[in-house]
């Protein structure tokens, strides 16, 4: 595989890490990770977003390293607090491209160049066309779409399309905080317990099968999506942007493996094996892409 057009992006950090850890993480990404775009901003819970003053430092460092920064917005906007938080993101346009994850953000961004994130439902060409007409230049697609839909959308797209190829999948979002609930708390008095699980709190079925993880208001897949072997097919469709979702692992190594794979320096089999051997032994999945249950790993 050899595609100089192919670009890697680092999705927004979905977990509630300590501010110093976040800063260090992004500084390392800036210095060492071969990614083209970096999405920054709190997507899951507005309660986490206040007081996070690391963003300007991080943006500066990433830009100095030649990365393009995109600001990711909140996924579920319910009350005034959420709305004000979203507006603080939107205020960074047009200096930065904003990735809208809710229709209310798109409402503000229409007519300006913007990005649309995977929490806005775009399942078909007509919806894609509607948002493109409104100024969407980058669209990160929903993880649920099978390759047949990705292809049909890529055939129709004028915007840059992006697909998540690494990391736990954000399966659901709720008004209720499951992290708080798992600690016998409620959202109002959550004590920010979501900061205890850097990659989410594992949820097992009664059979003892690890199945999901909870991350505050969000419920995610236990498995890590890994579409390394599917990259050539997506490039063939005309999809050129691939999102890696941050986890508490050596993300520099992860991004390097995907980059090497895209550049044809190593085969996808070998890169996948390295991911398991050198980064971490996770359960991987690619089911959604192949039209199967999302948790499945379809052997190619």
């Amino acid at each position: 595989m050899n595609s100089t057009q192919a670009k890697l992006s680092l999705g927004p950090l979905l977990f509630n890490w300590d501010v110093d850890k976040i800063r260090d993480f992004y500084f390392k990404i800036a210095d060492e990770a071969p990614v083209d775009h970096v999405y920054v901003g709190e997507v899951v819970c507005s309660k986490r977003g206040y007081g996070n003053d690391y963003i300007p430092d991080v943006i500066e460092r990433l830009e100095r390293a030649g990365k393009k920064v995109i600001i990711s917005g909140l996924a579920l906007i319910m009350d005034d607090k959420d709305k004000r938080f979203m507006e603080s993101h939107n205020a960074m346009s047009p200096d930065y491209m904003i990735e809208a994850n809710d229709l209310s953000a798109i409402n503000f961004l229409r007519g300006k160049d913007h990005a649309i994130g995977p929490f806005v439902n775009i399942y078909n060409e007509a919806t894609l066309r509607y948002f493109e007409k409104g100024g969407a230049k980058r669209v990160s697609l929903n993880h649920e779409l099978p390759c047949s839909s990705l292809k049909a959308l890529a055939d129709a797209a004028t915007a840059e399309l992006e697909v998540q190829v690494f990391g736990r999948l954000p399966l659901a979002i709720s008004a209720r905080c499951y992290h708080a609930r798992a600690h016998n708390l409620n959202k109002g008095g959550c004590q920010y317990v979501c900061d205890r699980d850097a990659d989410g709190l594992t949820v097992d079925t009664l059979d003892g099968v690890p199945f999901l993880v909870i991350n505050g208001l969000q419920t995610m897949s236990y498995t890590y999506c890994n579409l390394m072997k599917e990259l050539p097919e997506m490039l063939g469709m005309g999809i050129n942007n691939f999102r890696l979702s941050p986890h508490d692992v050596d993300m520099v190594k992860v991004t390097q493996l995907y980059r090497d794979c895209l550049d044809g320096k190593i085969e996808s089999d070998e890169a996948s094996q390295s991911l398991e051997d050198e980064v971490f032994a996770a359960e991987f999945s690619n089911g959604f892409y192949h039209g199967e249950p999302g948790m499945e790993q379809v052997e190619l």
Partner: peptide, 21 residues
């Protein structure tokens, strides 16, 4: 639904079939 409707793929994650699709 305890989840925000239209933004949940728990069902398809396990069964391949979802409310949205």
């Amino acid at each position: 639904c305890p989840m925000a409707e239209g933004r949940c793929s728990l069902s398809s994650y396990l069964t391949g079939q979802s409310p949205n699709m």
